[in-house]
Design a binder for these strands. Structure first.
Lengths: 335, 335
DNA sequence: GTTTATTTTGGTATCGATACCATACTTGAT
DNA sequence: ATCAAGTATGGTATCGATACCAAAATAAAC
């Protein structure tokens, strides 16, 4: 076992023959310390292998230099790119990321938030935009920046970074309508758990409504996890039984779309001749699958870096309030 | 905006007419407090909306209830499942996870570690097993558990959780040899960055050597990121030019294997008739791709939960030192 | 050379919870 | 009724860094 004693700032100060506060300044605001002392202190730090204690610093300065993030799952590749962007940008600025996942259980969110707040973070990132009453109350009482990412909420609590799922769903539906499809179904996005998918579906419904068409949606209300490939195939199978003359399927995600495409291939349906298929995501399973899927590409990493900047400079971000990074409708071979 | 004042433990104690220490005990060791006082304190906590300050608690108890993790990238789906397992198990035990990514830059590791140690974590998880001299020195001087995950190192610093990449590479090569392949190439795993992939390749080389066969490896030494699908296809293309009579390709990852399979399809090579292809990973792109890929499945989530347990009960874990969770050779349609 | 502005430096109180020790209060046994 | 053993409770010092203010050193201005 190693030594249990940490070198303290006082040890460094004594060795360098300065006051502790000077050591503190060398680390935080080196430009305010004369060169000679700065070098002496730096040498003492190196010699002793001093590692500052931020828990103490956080207590006295009430700035923890930590940001908290609450995501549904880390494994969800959607958030993974965002987290990379976030963590990278924050680390470069000397901050750390405290990560909590709720595992798609909305009841966990408030608990997770309380646990996070106990660490007195300098800011919080949330990936969900609908919160329980307790959560909202808690968030509103905070004086730290709160950044809601991915889905742009109608009334952001503080700062929002993302894009409009509704608009994206609407655009994709328009694309299918404009390319002459007559019966367009929507698969997935039913669960209350996934507000983002639901908004996409609502965009789809609005577009069809405007065009005088009847929405056909197929979803498993009770799902506890986001639908996978198998589920996509099954949805499509059932959906086709109920509505045989469907000529386009808009999917809540690329994963579901790949399932549909597999099932379509099995049935020898010509894509896009007899059936158009679209996805959503643009960076997960679509490319490796080899299906040349029409999809909506979302700016995952950009959301990460933009929200990091919002956390680091909340006033600048608050001036904009809602930072819409848009998305890209990528038309490829399946429509 | 909002109020800037946090409710303190003293406020709760005053309202409940008890000492601060009793409030502390209600939160940490409720069984040591009489029922009447416990209820009174609990009510005061709820009424005031008290959120404890763990930064203060960490300072006085020198237990931060935070664990640190250093990963190469969060986005890498390989670690994502592990992180989910880790974070989930830790949160259930009342701990938080401080996450840092090095972005495949080994020089960053020591910096990241220092930054992490400044938060005085109760334990550390590392995804890399070869460390700089400075990093090793730092790690050895710690009295907290250090868990190295994924690749089992020959000499673990403290506790190791994972499986043997060498053994896995060896097994897969044996499988190809046993099924009668004569010229087996290995794609990828060359970069110094990816110690895990390199170990797989070394296992492959050992197996071929034992069988009296000549290894054919193809890799881009200078790569800064793990090879993707396109690179897999390109590797295979070049490799085939140099060695036309290859009848099996063992890939460092599923992603590379999918690239090879795409290229093989383009060239009308019969799989597995003319060419056998194997991957590694078992949970990322292989399934969605629709190729029925023979691969090695690795216990991603299990590594996460097992390392969480190791952090929470280091003494039990240290008794085993190395926790080998194994892997699964899954023979499917491509070999 | 003296005064004024500016920079550099250190002492001490403080942040909020917990450890440690001492005291008050139970309970059960004699 | 008394004492021992155990449990419940509170007072106070403490963790390590930073804020705040005051003092000292230096530079600039006349």
């Amino acid at each position: 076992m190693g030594k249990d004693k940490w070198v303290t700032m006082k040890d460094v100060a004594d060795l360098a023959k300065v006051g502790t506060i000077t050591v503190s300044r060398v680390l935080r605001t080196p430009e305010k310390v004369s060169e000679s002392k700065r070098l002496r202190v730096q040498k003492a730090i190196d010699d002793l292998g001093y590692v500052p204690d931020n828990t103490a610093g956080a207590l006295s300065s009430s700035r923890s230099r930590v940001f908290g993030a609450i995501v549904s799952t880390i494994g969800d590749s959607v958030f993974a790119s965002t987290l990379d962007g976030l963590s990278g940008t924050l680390r470069a600025a000397g901050y750390e990321l405290l990560l909590t996942s709720t595992g798609y259980d909305p009841d966990v969110e408030e608990d997770a938030l309380r646990a996070l707040l106990a660490r007195r973070p300098d800011g919080i990132v949330l990936t969900s935009t609908s919160h329980s009453a307790g959560t909202s109350k808690l968030l509103k009482s905070l004086s730290i920046p709160v950044v809601e990412i991915w889905q742009l909420p109608p009334a952001p609590l503080d700062i929002a970074v993302g894009f409009s799922n509704f608009q994206a769903g609407h655009d994709m539906a328009r694309h299918l309508i404009d390319s002459g499809r007559k019966t367009i179904a929507f698969l997935g996005g039913g669960g209350l758990l996934d507000a983002r998918g639901r908004r996409r579906r609502e965009g789809y419904e609005a577009a069809l409504h405007t065009a005088g068409m009847t929405p056909v949606t197929w979803t498993d209300q009770g799902q506890a996890v986001p639908p996978g490939i198998e589920l996509g195939a099954a949805f499509f199978d059932e959906c086709l039984k109920a509505n045989p003359h469907i000529d386009a399927v808009m999917c809540v995600s690329d994963t579901v779309a790949v399932g549909v495409l597999c099932e379509a291939r099995r049935r020898n349906l010509k894509v896009p001749g007899e059936l158009a298929v679209s996805g959503f995501g643009g960076f997960d399973v679509a490319r490796p699958s080899g299906f040349d899927l029409t999809t909506i590409e979302v700016p995952g990493t950009a959301i990460g870096t933009a929200s990091a900047q919002a956390l680091l400079d909340p006033d600048a971000a608050r001036a904009r309030k809602v930072i819409d990074l848009g998305y890209k409708l990528v038309v490829r071979g399946t429509t």
